[in-house]
């Protein structure tokens, strides 16, 4: 299966899950931002360019199911994914905790940017208190489901790329 088909399959599955099952399972009225997670992880595993393109289509799908104007999340997600991917390249070491915190921060930033752009276009965002609560909760919920999604996205996004080469400096 080609890389594009894999990514397409992951995006279609994600949109179906986000619009159905995950929408039913809300905590405090907030649901998992699965499409944003897929976009961020694609950037993480597949590089900024691949991530940006995936993020654009993830944004378009997200706009369609949440009823936002088409292009709003597609405008916000790609720069966010490129930023996460670039930061990841500069990280010397990553642990599950830092990865989880990165996902949390990325989701919260994604929500904030979407609200800000929405307000520029005359759409209502939540109040500041509500926004903080919603962004943090969405970040936590999304970070919780990140591990299994990460495996799937890695499978989809790293096709055709050379394997990881670990370089260790010898002690002494």
């Amino acid at each position: 299966m080609t890389l594009r088909l894999r990514v397409l399959l992951v995006l279609v599955t994600a949109v179906a899950l986000e619009g159905t099952l995950l929408d039913e399972l809300r905590v405090g009225g907030v649901s998992v931002e699965l499409l944003l997670l897929v976009a961020v992880l694609t950037g993480y595993h597949g590089g900024p360019e691949r991530g940006a393109i995936t993020a654009f289509f993830a944004g378009l799908l997200h706009d369609s199911i949440v009823g936002a104007p088409l292009g709003l999340h597609a405008l916000v997600y790609p720069p966010l994914v490129v930023a996460v991917s670039s930061l990841e390249l500069r990280m010397l070491r990553s642990t599950p905790v830092t990865d989880g915190l990165a996902v949390l921060a990325a989701v919260a930033a994604g929500q904030g940017l979407a609200s800000a752009v929405g307000m520029l276009f005359g759409l209502l965002g939540p109040t500041p208190q509500e926004f903080v609560r919603q962004a943090v909760l969405a970040g936590i919920l999304t970070a919780v489901v990140a591990a299994p999604v990460n495996r799937v996205v890695r499978w989809a996004a790293t096709s055709g790329l050379p394997g990881t080469i670990e370089i260790h400096r010898g002690a002494g």
């Binding site: 993480y44 595993h45 597949g46 590089g47 900024p48 360019e49 691949r50 940006a52 393109i53 993020a55 654009f56 944004g59 292009g71 709003l72 597609a74 405008l75 790609p78 720069p79 490129v82 991917s85 670039s86 990841e88 390249l89 990280m91 990553s94 790293t158 790329l161 050379p162 394997g163 990881t164 080469i165």
Partner: peptide, 23 residues
């Protein structure tokens, strides 16, 4: 860490995607 990547040009891609989204 992610796998090493081939040379990428995220900036032109990003600009193109932003223009498409804004349109």
């Amino acid at each position: 860490m992610a796998a090493p990547r081939p040379a990428e040009r995220p900036r032109p891609t990003l600009l193109l995607l932003a223009a498409a989204a804004l349109t």
